[in-house]
């Protein structure tokens, strides 16, 4: 055995080295994930526009970009508006997705067909949904025509040109597409329910409502919490529909955080301002996620305690 190889093997066999070696890929991955974040923090502390030379020569300005961000009325409103969209869309998606899963949980003729149809919206590219809806939702568009047929009189809802209705259109688009995901998650939750407690309750004469209310629903809580966290985080990043349906308008009624950040960074070339805004948003979303995870853990703990009893 060559001397160099012997030395290398001896080095690898040392306890200190062997203990740390398996974690090298993890650390590399951590660095890989952290690098963009570090860059984001750096950019938020300097004053750089894309039109102003290279970013590593940009002057340091400290927290000035953060001050600009919190004083920017448009940014603050975009944050409030985005949380508003999420607060409207996510409960609707949860309710509808849960309801559809409830209908499709048991076997019946055509179940596969309905399940496939309910999952279809999720498989369409959001940009396509946005573009299609922009054609469907004009005054003379098919949606108003259907509403007119149903109402038996001309109905003209100004879906994308009215300040309030445009918000509803964006929420509607999100609900239309992402109820599928909640449906899928809850349907999997139903499929994974343990059969024994349900059988036992049935044997003890519990009604279907009692079984649902006192056994199935508590068991599904963690699944619902996951659906809530996933959808909320996604809804806070809503981008495609406002851009394609309304360009953030009319006025700025549908300008979400993602749309505004994209404008500030790429259209207005103010990358440092966009970086500061992104970090503020990240802190808000992390806070929300931590609270949601805390609730999820509490639910699991309670469930485990009840099972133990």
């Amino acid at each position: 055995m060559p001397a160099a190889r012997r030395v290398a093997l001896a080095w690898l066999e040392r306890e200190q080295v062997f203990k740390w070696l398996p974690f090298v890929p993890v650390q590399a991955l951590l660095v890989f994930l952290l690098l963009p974040f570090v860059l984001l923090v750096y950019l938020s502390l300097v004053s750089w526009r894309i039109t102003r030379g290279v970013w590593w020569h940009a002057p340091f300005v400290g927290a000035a970009n953060f001050t600009v961000a919190v004083r920017d009325e448009r940014f603050v409103w975009a944050v409030i508006r985005t949380f508003g969209f999420a607060a409207a869309a996510v409960p609707l998606e949860l309710g509808l997705g849960f309801g559809l899963a409830l209908l499709c949980r048991e076997r019946f003729r055509g179940r596969r067909f309905y399940t496939t149809v309910f999952l279809l919206p999720m498989m369409i590219v959001p940009a396509v949904v946005g573009y299609d809806l922009s054609m469907l939702l004009i005054d003379q568009g098919p949606l108003n025509q259907i509403l007119s047929l149903l109402a038996g009189r001309p109905v003209t809802v100004r879906w994308i040109s009215d300040y309030r209705m445009a918000k509803a259109a964006i929420v509607g688009a999100d609900v239309w597409q992402w109820t599928s995901l909640v449906f899928l998650i809850v349907l999997s939750g139903f499929a994974g329910l343990p059969p024994d407690p349900i059988r036992a309750a049935r044997a003890m004469g519990a009604s279907r409502w009692q079984i649902f209310r006192h056994i199935e629903l508590p068991l599904l809580k963690p699944v619902l919490a996951i659906a809530l966290v996933l959808r909320s985080m996604e809804a806070l990043k809503i981008f495609d529909y406002p851009v394609l349906l309304t360009e953030g308008g009319p006025g700025n009624s549908t300008e979400t955080i993602a749309v505004y950040l994209w404008r500030v960074g790429w259209d207005f070339t103010r990358v440092s301002d966009a970086a500061a805004m992104s970090l503020i948003l990240m802190v808000v979303v992390v806070m929300y996620t931590v609270i949601a995870i805390h609730i999820l853990r509490r639910e699991r703990r309670q469930l485990a305690e009840e099972a133990a009893r």
Partner: peptide, 10 residues
Amino acid sequence: PKDILGWATP
């Protein structure tokens, strides 16, 4: 048209 605020070329 009343929804002209949403209109461009398409």
